[in-house]
Design a protein around this nucleic acid. Structure first.
Length: 483
DNA sequence: TCTGGGGTCCTAGGACCC
DNA sequence: TCTGGGGTCCTAGGACCC
């Protein structure tokens, strides 16, 4: 709910450990937020003069499409983001344009606008294609400056964006935190600029509906409304223990802080991805298991391609299945090692999805991979149940000469105390099976595989490699030579 | 005629370990 | 016979954001 709010893990300290918890993070208006106005629709109106002054909706144009961005002319008729396209059509007069979007053009304009921002600040955090924060403190004398200085800088940015993008307008907010900067830009829209000077936060927030706080959505609003809260000032009057009991630990503290304008999140230039997913809503519900299987394969390939491009290997494969009644079901499974391989992801996704059941029809399918681990050289710890915890460690290596999948196996009848400790595979092992006496490892890629044994051992027998199509091997079973 | 796609974070319960 | 707590990992689902 209030994931946007930083919660210190150690009580009494903010991020970095230097800011006492409970005090505003900054005494200067040094965080800036830029938001490109009605971005997708504005790009379309810029490139197609015939669309200017008319309602423009960019989004899904199919039977089950939703509005991604509505131009201000369309918003005049009550059209909003996330609204079903059919509803937008019903609300708009003739002459309104419905477009499916040209993402390359949007990316180009986004990059141009971001370039202007980077000229002003060395610490820029891109939040989405049309939004970014900048920390002004490293590059500007924010301690000594005035409101007029902040406004001049923001205006310079807006003019720069207009020039670099062929006339797109941006709304800019400046404040003492990310939250205040964002709320300032929101308040200035469209084509505006607003500085909330330190000390003005409480007055700015007081009369706003609590829904205006970033992180307070429909569900939270409804919960709090039953306790009589409407505005941010109402929230401020609620005691922390009450908020926690209504909203839970994290959101309770989060809302308590938000209502006071407290937000200690830093502007960060880089964030690590935590998951990669692809999903699709079908024009017609799927009822055939074979169709479901085929679609999962396509989605898995999209995910695998993006993992590979990013150099990521994930251990957890998830599926999302939405039924015709819009009920949504999630299943996930965690592998012993990371993967980026479409076949393995497909195999797991199909297994999970069929476990949920197709029901009366599948409206949406999704595939995700998360739980990223370091790739190839990462040593994967293997859990083999109770085993030897002390003693010697031995490593054995084998060369893998096949470019396709291969297996490495070993035989260790003499030492029943040894257990497999870790395996390093060139591009990540895919299936691992091991017992005290013998084991095998599936993987792909060329190179040397290292298998490490832990505990007292007389040494494993010869490590052998197999081609993927070796008849002695089957994907999910130990090889024939295993005891 | 219903309600996209890409993400992040939080919660609660169970398993398992110490 | 009854009864611990804390920590971590995993899973399913909810909420929120753009």
């Amino acid at each position: 709910m209030c994931r946007t709010v930083y919660r210190p893990t150690a009580p009494g300290r903010g991020p970095g450990g230097s800011v006492p918890y409970g005090l505003p993070m900054r005494a200067t208006a040094s965080v800036l937020h830029v938001d490109l106005d009605a971005f997708f629709a504005a790009v379309e109106q810029r490139d197609k003069p015939s669309l200017r002054g008319r309602p423009v909706v960019v989004g899904g144009t199919g039977r089950r499409g939703v509005v991604s961005t509505a131009s201000y002319e369309a918003r005049h008729y009550g059209v909003r983001s996330a609204m079903p396209a059919w509803q937008a059509r019903a609300q708009l007069p003739g002459g309104a344009a419905f477009l499916s979007g040209r993402f390359d053009a949007y990316r180009r304009s986004s990059r141009a606008a971001l370039g202007v921002l980077r000229e002003l600040s060395s610490v820029v955090e891109q939040v989405s294609i049309d939004e970014a924060y900048a920390d002004l403190a490293p590059d500007w004398p924010v301690d000594g400056w005035s409101r007029a200085d902040a406004e001049a800088l923001a205006e310079r940015l807006r003019a720069g964006v207009r020039g670099a993008t062929g006339g797109l307008t941006a709304s800019v907010g400046v404040g003492s935190s990310k939250m205040m900067a964002k709320m300032a830009s929101e308040a200035s829209k469209p084509d505006g600029l607003r500085v909330i000077w330190p000390g003005e936060e409480a007055a700015f927030l007081a009369d706003l509906p609590m829904r205006a706080l970033p992180g307070v959505g429909p569900a939270t609003t409804e919960k709090l409304r039953t306790f009589g809260a409407v505005t941010v000032a109402d929230l401020r009057r609620m005691a922390l223990p009450d908020l926690v009991s209504i909203l839970g630990e994290a959101s309770g503290h989060g809302v308590h802080d938000l209502a006071r304008g407290i937000d200690r999140r830093e502007v960060t230039t880089h964030r690590e991805a935590k998951s990669v997913s692809a999903e699709e809503t079908f024009h017609q519900d799927l009822t055939d298991v074979r169709e479901v299987t085929a679609e999962l394969g396509l989605l898995a390939r999209r995910v695998a391609a993006r993992l590979e491009k990013a150099g990521l290997f994930g251990r957890t494969v998830g599926v999302k299945l939405r039924r015709h009644d819009f009920s949504t079901h999630l299943r996930s499974t965690t592998l012993a090692h990371g993967t980026d391989r479409a076949e393995l992801i497909t195999e797991q996704a199909v297994r999970l999805a069929l476990g949920i059941g197709v029901g009366d029809g599948v409206r949406l399918l999704g595939v995700s991979v998360s739980g990223f681990v370091e790739h190839s050289q990462e040593l994967m710890p293997l859990d083999l149940g109770p085993g030897v915890t002390s003693g010697s460690q031995e490593s054995h290596t084998a060369d893998v000469s096949s470019e396709t999948d291969a297996a490495v196996g070993w035989d260790d009848e003499e030492s029943h105390a040894a257990r497999l400790g870790r395996v390093a595979w060139p591009t990540g092992a895919d299936v691992v099976h091991a017992e005290h006496g013998a084991g095998w490892v599936w993987g792909s890629g060329l190179g040397r595989v290292t298998v490490r044994f832990e505990g007292p051992t007389t040494g494993p027998g010869p490590i052998r490699t197999f081609e993927a199509d070796d008849p002695a091997l089957r994907r999910s079973d130990p090889p024939a030579w295993a005891p």
